[in-house]
């Protein structure tokens, strides 16, 4: 009697194994198969920081900082964008902080956080995108951004990417897609 019951359970067990194994194939572990954008641009591997001899930096941050620094040049030379970043071209004397250094740090922090960096030193701790780009809640925002302004910003970042040898179309598309997720919050006109 007991053996008969076991015999009946056997097909159920086999079916369970089949479905479980199928389920694992259908829903792969995202951590194993989908690397973050941050890891795709270099990740957490420590490398020597070319602008700070003797210090190390995560390769992902180094890539993003290089892109930001190149893009800042493009933005500063873009008449559409210059209206939003006048402080970039404002001169400071010895003993004061320049807009270039501050913008580089903060935009790099923002991109590190947005692409999936988990390093607390690289965390973006600024205002949320809506409040940050609303002239009524942020005095530094002289005027609201339009879709055309945002398009110009994306185009400038794309030039920054190409200047740093980021030519992988998938990677560029994913980075641009990431920036596009902020459009609705940034464009307020």
């Amino acid at each position: 009697m007991f053996k008969n019951k076991l015999f009946l359970l056997l097909p159920i067990f086999a079916a369970s194994v089949f479905f479980i194994s199928c389920k694992e194939e259908d829903t792969p572990d995202p951590n194993l198969t989908t690397p973050t954008l941050y890891s795709r641009v270099g990740g957490t591997t420590l490398v020597a920081d070319p602008i700070a001899p003797g210090t190390m930096i995560e390769a992902g941050r180094l890539t993003l900082r290089s892109v930001v620094d190149s893009s800042i040049f493009v933005i500063a030379a873009d008449p559409t964008m210059a209206a939003f970043f006048p402080v970039l071209l404002g001169e400071v004397g010895v003993g004061d902080l320049s807009g270039l250094g501050m913008l580089s740090d903060n935009l790099t922090d923002f991109l590190c956080s947005a692409t999936g960096s988990t390093n607390p030193d690289y965390a973006y701790i600024g205002l949320n995108m809506i409040d940050a780009h609303d002239p009524s809640t942020n005095g530094r925002m002289g005027m609201a951004a339009t879709d055309a302004d945002f398009d110009a910003f994306i185009a400038d970042i794309a030039i920054g990417l190409s200047q740093n040898g980021v030519t992988d179309a998938d990677l560029i598309n994913d980075l641009v897609e990431l920036l596009e997720t902020t459009r609705a919050d940034i464009v307020q006109m």
């Binding site: 939003f84 970043f85 006048p86 402080v87 970039l88 807009g99 501050m102 913008l103 903060n106 935009l107 923002f110 973006y124 600024g126 205002l127 940050a132 780009h133 942020n138 005095g139 530094r140 925002m141 002289g142």
Partner: peptide
């Protein structure tokens, strides 16, 4: 005094 809000 103006600039990218991320700088503030």
């Amino acid at each position: 005094t103006k600039g990218c809000p991320a700088m503030s």
